[in-house]
Amino acid sequence: MELVLSGAIGILAASGIWLLLRPRTFQVIVGLCLLSYAVNLFIFSMGRLTFGAPAIMPRGGFVNPASYADPLPQALVLTAIVISFATTALFLVVLIASRGLTGTDHVDGKEP
């Protein structure tokens, strides 16, 4: 499980960074998306990996925290997803504006 998850995060991050360094704006935005997926999975894994454990504890009585998943990283991931979704959407608008104004999709606004 650890191996699969770390491999997935690694591949996502590596492809994301590769695309981020490419000269076309669309590649940059896809790269940013992949990177943010990798980061979200990474945050999730920082709460330790558990199988089939709920994150919400019942009210009252004794609860054994070991049989529950850490809820905090899940909340953090949720916030991070929403924020990166919004900023990526904004970036998309700027990308289209840039394409319209310069007539090229190169990140510097002109063909090299």
Binding site: L20, T25, V28, L32, L35, S36, V39, F42, I43, A80, I83, S84, T87, T88, L90, F91, V94, L95, A97, S98, L101, T102, V107, D108, G109
Partner: peptide, 19 residues
């Protein structure tokens, strides 16, 4: 728009590092 494109890309990457 060109300056903004670079600025946004850099800061989005920065935010991911922050996370």
């Amino acid at each position: 728009v060109r300056g903004g494109l670079h600025y946004i890309a850099i800061n989005l990457t920065g935010s991911l590092l922050f996370l």
